[in-house]
């Protein structure tokens, strides 16, 4: 008798489990209609309190004006965002998981090592931040401008060290591109993060950093920004000349935005996109972003995806040129 109960019980559990699995496979039109009827999780692939987190927290503060359910921020940090990107790419494509992606991170990581996602494993909602790269030295450095920097390093190759936030990151790629276009050889120093870049630079342990506008505008008095990798001068740094002005064809930035797992229903994508478009055009949003040192620059997902496609090809070429990948 006991055995009978046991078997019966196991069968019930199996039934229940398979029912759950059934529910999981398809997103029905009713689900789309009623979306969202539960909390939407937002994966932040970097640490709490970091810039990506701050960005998402600002969006979260307006989220409730557009949706009845909460946005729940979850942190999956590690390996330059790879842990979080993987989590996002593998999540169920039902609209209840979205997350931040960054370029060129999502492009470089699959190029550099075996990852469980590819640069096109995401259904991209929108770009939120476009933070151009800058080459900066310490304010009291004996290098005054880009010409001097290039002259010095041409005289003695590798004699200047440039701090980066790790290997196979945007800073790394931009530095390689810089070495390529300016035909110089610097010594790239991969550090743990942007805080370490600033620390080592101010401490005089490295000569320059390849950073972002957001890093140096926190306290401009500490830095002498030699050049910015944009087409035209940036409104936050009007006195800083572009690389292009100085004869070096270098345009690069770190972009951040939101994405869904691939194959999320288009209707849900559209709902989220509309809300994002409205939130990001609020004047208070822009103000808060600027206060937090985030260079807001909204771009719809499909346009960003095209840019990413181009960037991927370019990055591959550069890395192959420097023998960084096979």
């Amino acid at each position: 008798m006991k055995k009978f109960y046991l078997i019966g019980f196991s069968m019930l559990i199996l039934l229940f489990a398979s029912a759950c699995a059934q529910l999981g496979t398809e997103v029905s039109s009713e689900d789309i209609e009623s979306y969202p009827d539960k909390d939407v999780r937002n994966i932040v692939p970097f640490s709490a309190g970091g810039t990506t987190d701050v960005n998402q927290r600002i969006i979260e503060s307006y989220w409730k004006d557009y949706f009845p359910e909460n946005m729940v921020i979850e942190y999956y940090e590690g390996a330059g965002g790879e842990v979080g990107f993987t989590e996002l790419s593998k999540a169920k494509a039902d609209g209840y998981t979205m997350g931040s992606i960054n370029t060129p991170h999502i492009i470089l990581q699959p190029l550099a090592r075996e990852t469980q996602f590819e640069y096109d494993s995401f259904d991209i909602l929108a770009r939120l931040v476009h933070d151009p790269q800058v080459l900066a030295v310490k304010a009291d450095s004996d290098i005054d401008d880009l010409d001097e920097f290039i002259e010095k390093v041409k005289e003695k190759p590798k004699s200047l060290s440039v701090g980066l936030t790790g290997t196979y990151t945007g800073d790394h790629l931009t530095t390689l591109k810089f070495m390529d276009t300016a035909d110089v050889q610097v010594t790239p120093v991969p550090l743990a993060g942007s805080a370490d870049q600033v620390k080592e630079l101010l401490g005089g342990h490295i000569d320059a950093i390849m950073g972002n506008v957001g890093d140096v505008t926190k306290d401009l008095d500490q830095f002498n920004v030699l050049a910015i990798a944009t087409e035209e001068r940036h409104e936050w740094l009007p006195d800083v000349p572009t690389f292009k002005e100085q004869g070096i064809d270098l345009v690069a930035a770190i972009d951040r935005g939101l994405a869904l797992p691939k194959d999320t229903p288009q209707e849900i994508h559209d709902k989220l996109f509309e809300a994002l478009e409205q939130i990001t055009s609020l004047p208070e949003y822009e103000e808060k972003m600027e206060d937090a040192g985030l260079v807001a620059d909204f771009l719809p997902g499909d346009e960003w995806a095209e840019l990413i496609e181009e960037q991927q090809k370019e990055a591959k070429e550069v890395l192959e040129k420097f023998d960084e990948i096979e």
Binding site: G49, V54, R57, A195, K199, D219, Q222, K288, A292, G293
Partner: peptide, 27 residues
């Protein structure tokens, strides 16, 4: 003093400062 978060907790606090529109550092 420098705007450099030296510990994990300081990094989280930096986020708190930024959200309130405070720029840590010499100023």
């Amino acid at each position: 003093t420098l705007g450099i978060p030296g510990s994990p907790v300081a990094a989280v606090l930096l986020g708190g400062l930024l959200i309130h529109g405070l720029q840590p550092g010499a100023k």
